[in-house]
Design a protein around this nucleic acid. Sequence first.
DNA 1: GTCTATAGGGGGATAGAC
DNA 2: GTCTATCCCCCTATAGAC
Lengths: 229, 229
Amino acid sequence: METDTRSRILAAAEDLFVQHGLDATTLRMITTAAHANLAAVNYHFGSKEALIETVFRRRLTWLNDQRIAALDALEAEAKGAPLKPRQIVESYFGVAIRLAASSPGGRTFMRLLGRTYTEPSEFVRSFLAEEYAEVIARYKAAFFKALPDVPQEEFLWRFHFMMGALSYAVSGVDALRLLGPVDESDPEALYTRLMSFLIGGLRAPLPEIQSQAVRKPRAKRATPDRASD
Amino acid sequence: METDTRSRILAAAEDLFVQHGLDATTLRMITTAAHANLAAVNYHFGSKEALIETVFRRRLTWLNDQRIAALDALEAEAKGAPLKPRQIVESYFGVAIRLAASSPGGRTFMRLLGRTYTEPSEFVRSFLAEEYAEVIARYKAAFFKALPDVPQEEFLWRFHFMMGALSYAVSGVDALRLLGPVDESDPEALYTRLMSFLIGGLRAPLPEIQSQAVRKPRAKRATPDRASD
DNA sequence: GTCTATAGGGGGATAGAC
DNA sequence: GTCTATCCCCCTATAGAC
């Protein structure tokens, strides 16, 4: 707690953002929690938006650099041969789980990131896209090479589903509690569970896609409020 | 568009909530889009919170009733025998995908719901928990019976991961665009792709869980801002 | 760097006329 | 049921003293 004002603001913001959401968190809440003056955010960061961007970028840049480094290491070892899908999955998602497990701040950040993939705000989405561009390109290429029998569009959907599972694994604690009592305190167990689920999904038999209208449900009740659609 | 004021407000709110988030959507935005007066929300619903609750409950109650009806039908047909996991997965997640495919309003709502599972707001979480209580209990029981060889805690995590994949399937369009050009216009294809992924994950080989500290990454760089944790 | 004070805008809610 | 007008609150941002 005895660090400089700027760091205390970043830590408090990260924490409050994940508790209340970006919009509902006010500068007053942040500066109070950080034991700083209301004007301190604007002095150190310039604006609330700039603070948000700093909170995300400082850890996300590091996270994606780690992912790229992990892939570099795997590819150097393979000497041009395709990697095993499991290795790629473990390096991409393992880095995220480990960040969540490494410290309270890391865990807070991963929860924040998980729920911000689907963030409505335009400006958040734009800098996230920038931060992810390189790592996505590298992993796509590695996966395509490792899974030559899987159509690329099918793989992209599966990668997307995997990210959804990661997001819930790390940040959907409230949704999980809905399901009943589970132990969420052991990161190694979480890592292991998530990996076997992800590999199972990624390597599932390929579905036969045929374009046609979606099956209608056996409607027992009418669709609600259909007049409003 | 030529319905009553109350319905127009509900439709406009659903739409704006998914675009901007609950908090960033103002009553002024909603009433303007609905061609209604600012005071209309308070007249028809009492408060902004009550409006939010109405937006969610009108479709969510219907959705979960459909799920329960689908499970009733399967169980009646099975006459006490355990169901196939695939049938249960299809009935739970299929109803959601079909709602998303059934109308523009249904799709909007499912996107909204997907990103609200992880909604920070206490009051939203509390009425969602209420809406889900029965359907979760029924499906848990059906799954436990269908998967006697899977430890219950393992299954709960997998169910949770499946919900994450559904959430992204339906609402993570922006995250998906990050990955590259994909066709998101065919709901039947989406249904098929999601199902094979989910079944693959659900039926994956069971991991061996052993409690221990998480593996450390081969750190090439120091963890960022560790002083703040 | 840190503070107080305040500007300037926008929020949700409501009273009361029609 | 619908409208206008308005209350009162809290927001972000900044000016200027220390």
